[in-house]
Design a protein around this nucleic acid. Structure first.
Lengths: 338, 338
DNA sequence: GATTAGTAAGACAGCGCTATCTCAAAGTCG
DNA sequence: CGACTTTGAGATAGCGCTGTCTTACTAATC
């Protein structure tokens, strides 16, 4: 008798399931993968056998044999912004129950890091990729194309043949904020931006365009590539007050900046909204509790994650989503700060 | 001539690297894995060949052949608390450069979900697991033991043979807060807790014990199993004021609760710290910018992630960390709110 | 009733890598 | 100097699964 090979995992294998069900291994494989060409009766026998043995497929073997994993890569520019956390959670909620493994890559808003992550993670042969926005290096884009892995883009929209994306119009959101501030009689408008990724710039553009449409001179721009934070918001606010004391309306590209500014305003006795109206972006947790309660644009980040995952599943099934560029809109939450 | 099998990945394989280096496949394998028994000269030849071919190992094949992946599972109770994000980032920063794939599991503070995640992810044969705390279901613990995968526990400490953990004493942190409030002359102390996971309760215990040591009657406890949030903090604060108007010191188990309470205090004109001293926990971003600036316990969550990952790497190398239960301490950041 | 088409099940051969065993060459010792 | 250990490299045999080709059968067609 040959001894049992020591390097076996010890877990039941497909062969054992097949033996127990009295079918061939390949039939068991097909039955468990719900492939149509298996007799329903046999399929039931196989499933029963699998359950009885507590069989769990070996993903490595499956990936090796099929040259395609069941893992899905999600690339986000940051985890520190709560926004992306909600998107990730939604993505996981859709994909994990369907048996997919979700790999999370954080590229810290750096193109080179994103490229590196793509390069590394492609070696895992993911069966699909969820990406944030369209702004990436040529090489990264090329790697994705060459890999031939289905991709769905999140957050931004682009109407283009073969591109599947889920998001909302960052420009429209920026414009909406401008219109709102203008409707409140504000005329000395400012845009405060940090991080300066593509989406921040799109919001800025929409904001400025709306101001231009109203026949006013462009908003002053206070911008820094530093990562957005509460502390930075306070600093930029102080800087702004010193340089442009007559400012009467500010659009912060992210809520945390607005939070920091609000704190400084309280400290300095700058009346919000009486003297300056303040609007944030993303409606992060706490915006509605701030003093004063912060007006902000509520973005559908969870729904974006959910729908992006759903679209990717469609692509994996060989279908095309009926709406390739899905616009989920946004909502301006008008509160006390404006 | 036999046709090239269509299901090949198309990527260069180890066999090609070996051929190019003029060695056998297994020697190439050993060279690339830096196994000592390979002649340095040969090893260099192999590495050159690999570089020339842009060879990337196939993780699935590796996992299948060795019955052990290069992925490490990290289980955290939540992503919504910024605390764990920082831990995760630190873990990734240590493990990714070493070639490990980091799998993130979020169990939403639910034991059943954690158990399910462990069950699922064990099928990926992770080579190590990082866990949060010690509080989990019997079954989950059993699964981990049976799997024989090295584990490192984060956040809490336990001196026990065979347990490797990195964290700090939650009790000591709670006690420190109590001592601080007492040193400020506060006598009507309150503990406000949400989520009520094991660590919150440990902080509470340390807090109460320090109060008892000072010979005072126990702090009033306002506790709810709801998830911690800014909004909830405001609600609990209002509730507390109504029920115990003479309160003069509050310890919130997490900063977001303290944030919400501070906002409500501003709104209601309750003077912090004159009438009530407030202390938070974790020193989350923004705590130092609050109005008033929030006193909080700064927890070493990033270092915990880093050291936990380092300890796990040691375990994977067959070594034991010199300090199995690594206490990284904490720091009370005394600011305006107390 | 013979031929064709269609379908379900199986045989076979890997996917790309590593564990294990084997063997030759070099080094060690009394 | 021969027997014995050590060491480096290769041969072999899978890991557990799925793609592809084949075969056995049933149903459909004239």
């Amino acid at each position: 008798m040959k001894h049992t090979p020591s390097r076996a995992t010890g877990r039941p294998t497909l062969a054992q399931v097949a033996a127990r069900a009295g079918v061939s291994q390949i039939t068991a494989s097909r039955a468990l993968r719900s492939i149509a060409t298996v007799d329903p009766q046999l399929a039931i026998r196989v499933h029963d056998a699998a359950k009885a043995l507590a069989y769990v497929p070996n993903p490595a073997a499956r990936t090796l044999a099929s040259a395609r994993s069941h893992s899905i890569l999600v690339l986000v520019p940051a985890l520190s912004n709560h926004l992306f956390i909600e998107t990730l959670e939604a993505v996981q909620d859709v994909l994990r129950p369907r048996g997919f493994e979700v790999l999370i890559g954080n590229y810290h808003y750096r193109q080179d890091e994103e490229e590196e992550l793509i390069r590394n993670y492609l070696s895992f042969q993911p069966c699909g990729i969820l990406l944030t926005g369209f702004n990436r290096s040529e090489t990264a884009a090329q790697l994705l194309t060459n890999a031939g892995v289905p991709c769905v883009y999140m957050m931004e929209l682009r109407q283009e043949e073969g591109i599947v994306c889920v998001g909302f119009s960052q420009e429209a959101a920026g414009a909406k904020v401008a219109d709102h501030l203008l409707s409140r009689g504000r005329r000395k408008l400012v845009f405060v931006g940090a991080q300066l990724d593509a989406r921040v710039l799109q919001r800025r553009d929409g904001y400025q365009q709306a101001i231009a449409r109203a026949g006013l001179s462009p908003a002053i721009e206070i911008m820094t590539p530093e990562p957005s934070s509460v502390e930075l918001g306070g600093d930029l606010f102080n800087q702004l007050l010193a340089a442009h004391p007559d400012t009467d309306g500010i659009f912060f590209c992210n809520d945390d900046l607005a939070f920091g500014a609000s704190f400084e305003a309280l400290r300095k006795g700058v009346a919000i909204p009486e003297r300056i109206s303040v609007v944030g972006f993303n409606d992060l947790p706490g915006a509605g509790q701030m003093v004063p309660r912060l007006t902000s644009v509520r973005t559908p980040r969870a729904t974006i994650g959910q729908q992006a995952a759903a679209s990717l599943l469609k692509l994996l099934d060989g279908e095309t989503p009926e709406i390739p560029a899905l616009d989920l809109g946004f909502e301006l939450m008008i509160r006390e700060s404006s």
